[in-house]
């Protein structure tokens, strides 16, 4: 019988391993910081520059009659425009995106599905200014509609659809097959299984995906340049006439040579960043919440 090998026989190799592990952890940690630090800087700096200029007037007034060199005025027109444009874009983009996702996840087999998937991928890559150009040539020029919030919303919805399709398709594909089979086995038709079993089961995930898509387009500037075109005055009608929007407000004020205008740009940027962060946080909370029965 030989004696048992002592446990410490590999102590050298183990020491080296420990050092390698520490180095690797350090490398990964630094990479993380490198990625996160700029994000935190952007957020804190924007808020730090913008927050001091928050005021009642800033949120309740438009820029009407306020020259760039003077303080005063605010984002009322831009906020109304953004809410209407993003709202309209969601009204178009969400149902369309969800419908495509349901088609791909539940019915999509064969060539049409492959082509659809490919087109959705291509859409994901469309530069946002091109979406704006499309709405500009199609709605503003060809249909003689002029600049409007609706044209902006159509450009935004073009960007929204592929985001919705991708996230919703993944979520629908994650709903277990056995749930669908339970529905079929009860003698339910396919559309009924989709509408009453699959979609409710996917609900919280779909809502999260939708909110992320909304947050994603709310800050888009390029699609608005040639469609909403900005407006110093409040135009609450998204279907006719130039409209302001928060990104346009920031873009135009930041270009001015005067400090009051630049301050307004920071304040508007802080507003937009806070609003979008808020949407992200709500979406995260919705995902974290345990899914259970809600219907009676």
């Amino acid at each position: 019988m030989t004696t048992a090998t002592p446990l410490w026989v590999h102590r050298r190799r183990y020491r080296r391993r420990r050092w390698t592990a520490r180095l690797a952890a350090l490398a990964v940690g630094s990479a993380f910081l490198l990625a996160v630090v700029p994000l935190i800087l952007v957020l804190t700096y924007t808020i730090a520059r913008g927050l001091p200029h928050f005021s009642w007037v800033f949120f309740t007034h438009s820029l009407a009659g306020v020259p760039p060199s003077q303080a005063g005025g605010g984002i009322a027109a831009a906020t109304i425009g953004s809410l209407e444009q993003v709202g309209l874009a969601s009204l178009i983009g969400l149902p369309l995106g969800l419908a495509v996702a349901v088609y791909l996840a539940e019915y999509g087999t064969g060539r049409l599905a492959t082509v659809t998937r490919f087109l959705v991928d291509v859409m994901t890559g469309i530069p946002s200014i091109v979406a704006g150009l499309f709405a500009y040539t199609f709605i503003v020029i060809s249909l003689h509609q002029g600049f409007s919030g609706l044209a902006a919303a159509i450009a935004l919805s073009l960007l929204m659809v592929p985001i919705i399709v991708r996230s919703a398709e993944d979520i629908l594909a994650g709903i277990p097959r056995t749930l669908r089979e339970a529905g079929y086995a009860l003698g339910l038709r396919r559309w009924r299984v989709v509408v009453s079993i699959v979609l409710p089961a996917a609900r919280s995930g779909l809502i999260t995906g939708a909110m992320l898509a909304v947050a994603r387009i709310a800050g888009e500037t390029a699609p608005l340049l040639l469609t909403a075109f900005d407006n110093s005055y409040i135009n609450a009608n998204p279907f006719r006439g130039q409209q302001s929007a928060l990104p346009l407000f920031i873009y135009n004020q930041a270009q001015q040579a005067y400090q009051p205008a630049i301050d307004r740009a920071w304040a508007a940027a802080a507003t937009l960043v806070l609003a979008i962060t808020g949407i992200y946080i709500i979406a995260r909370l919705l995902t974290l919440r345990k899914s259970g029965a809600h219907r009676v």
């Binding site: 056995t178 089979e181 529905g183 339910l188 079993i197 409710p200 089961a201 899914s291 029965a293 219907r295």
Partner: peptide
């Protein structure tokens, strides 16, 4: 021809009552 599966698969978003009623109600 009804079916019962290997793993219990009640509809997760529905109540006990709605699960049993699902076959009739949803049809």
């Amino acid at each position: 021809v009804g079916m019962v599966f290997q793993r219990p698969n009640p509809f997760p978003t529905m109540s006990i009552h709605d699960n049993v009623a699902a076959g009739l109600k949803l049809a």
